[in-house]
Amino acid sequence: MVAMYKEGYSTSEIGKAANVTPRYVRTILHANDVSLRPRGSWKRKYTLNEDYFKTWSNNMAYILGFFAADGNLPKDNQTVSFSQKDPDILEKIKKEINSNQPLYQNAKTGVYVLNLNSKILKHDLMELHGFRPNKSAVLEFPEIPEPYLHHFIRGYFDGDGYVNYEQFEVVFVGGSIAFMERLRKILTKQNLNTTIRYYSNYTRVYLRGRKTIKLFAEWIYRREGEIFLQRKFQVFSNEYKHSSVLQDRIKKNTKQAVKKRKQLFLDKYQQSNNLEQACHYTRIVKATYYNWLKSDSIFRNKIQEIKSKNNFLKEDIVYYRIYILNNS
């Protein structure tokens, strides 16, 4: 407690981190002969862009969405608070808002908290964007300009959403029915397969299906260089890598299958010296044979070796031309 206070934390922040009251913190500080700062002076120690929420940008929309999920406006002081178990995303938010306010970690829950002390920030979140103290159950979906909508959704997803690729689903969680119903309408408008379920204390919106979550990821991450939660982005990235590997494997298996079928055709053609029988045995049509003959020089050379006379190959070419004319 003494070390945190000397680093600039307030008694309220220290109390939250230690799960004790600010009064108890002050008692500990007095017991350790620590001189207390004038009440309220600590709030001016750290800098930030107090007008940040006045101007729309991609990252502002993201932070607004993240705040809708993991933010808080205390009733009793002029503070804007963000909470997350991943400190990296809070550091990115700090940097974006030009703040040097240190994070603190709640000793009981392990959650990291970023407190931005600004009357202006709090006012703008309430008056410009409609947020209220203790917003969980009464949160309204803010009016987001269309170009910034997917950034806001990405922010909310990073705060109160998760992806499960084993079941091919993305899930959003929220305490406000009105907010979640509006969220579902927006996602449905993006041609995503959505469902909604109501529980006693919260509501969930589901995106289901491999195609749907792929489209969702492409929508919210379509601009590089923006803020996002790395561990959630990585889940989508792993799926893309998996899909790429899967497609390469399919192509490889297809090539091997065609190679085997060609060899089977050659074996049967050598035995029968009959095009019809070889096609029937290997379950291909004549057009496939002619395509192999035209595009695969190795196959064509092996056919030449099988044939006892060159005019047989010429005969195949004639048949090929007749086949094309009859089917054109």
Rank of each mutant, 00 (worst) to 15 (best):
R283F: 13
P38D: 06
F131I: 05
A217V: 04
Q167A: 12
K241H: 11
A18N: 10
K214C: 10
Y24M: 08
A18W: 06
I153M: 08
Y221P: 05
S308F: 07
S308P: 00
H242A: 14
L121F: 02
I322F: 07
R204C: 12
R37H: 08
K214G: 08
E305Q: 13
S35P: 01
L325G: 00
F236S: 02
D70Q: 10
L90G: 01
V80E: 00
P145A: 11
E96P: 03
E7T: 08
D267C: 03
V138L: 06
Y198Q: 11
V173I: 14
V235S: 03
Y52E: 02
N301M: 12
L207D: 03
S328G: 03
A69F: 00
E224I: 02
I89F: 05
L207C: 11
I250Y: 15
N301K: 11
T55R: 13
K108A: 12
K268H: 14
S237C: 05
V173E: 05
T212W: 01
F265R: 02
S41P: 09
Y202T: 06
L149W: 03
F131E: 02
K255N: 09
G130P: 01
I63A: 00
I93Q: 01
K108D: 14
G65W: 04
C279H: 03
L121D: 04
L73Q: 05
W56I: 05
L125Q: 03
I324C: 07
W56D: 05
R154F: 03
T254W: 10
I153L: 14
K307D: 15
L103V: 07
L116H: 01
Q190K: 15
N310W: 09
N58V: 12
K262E: 06
K286H: 08
Q256M: 07
G155H: 04
Q167V: 11
K45A: 09
N59F: 02
K259L: 12
R321F: 13
F312A: 13
G130M: 06
I220P: 01
G65E: 02
K309Y: 10
Q277T: 15
H129D: 04
K119N: 12
N72K: 08
V235E: 09
S297H: 10
S244R: 13
I120G: 00
S295P: 01
A18E: 15
L29W: 05
N164A: 10
N106T: 06
N164H: 11
L125H: 03
W219K: 13
F172P: 01
A217D: 02
A107I: 05
M60V: 09
Y156E: 01
F66W: 04
G71H: 02
R132W: 06
Y290I: 01
I63G: 00
K255V: 11
L114G: 02
I303W: 00
G155S: 08
A257R: 14
D76F: 15
F82R: 03
E96D: 10
E315L: 12
A107T: 07
Q84I: 02
M4R: 07
V25A: 03
I220W: 00
P147N: 08
Q101F: 06
K260V: 06
I120W: 00
L187W: 09
T288Q: 09
R23K: 13
Y206S: 10
L229V: 00
K302S: 11
Y198V: 10
L215D: 09
G159N: 06
N273L: 14
N291A: 13
A3Y: 14
K6Q: 15
L192G: 06
I220D: 00
G161T: 01
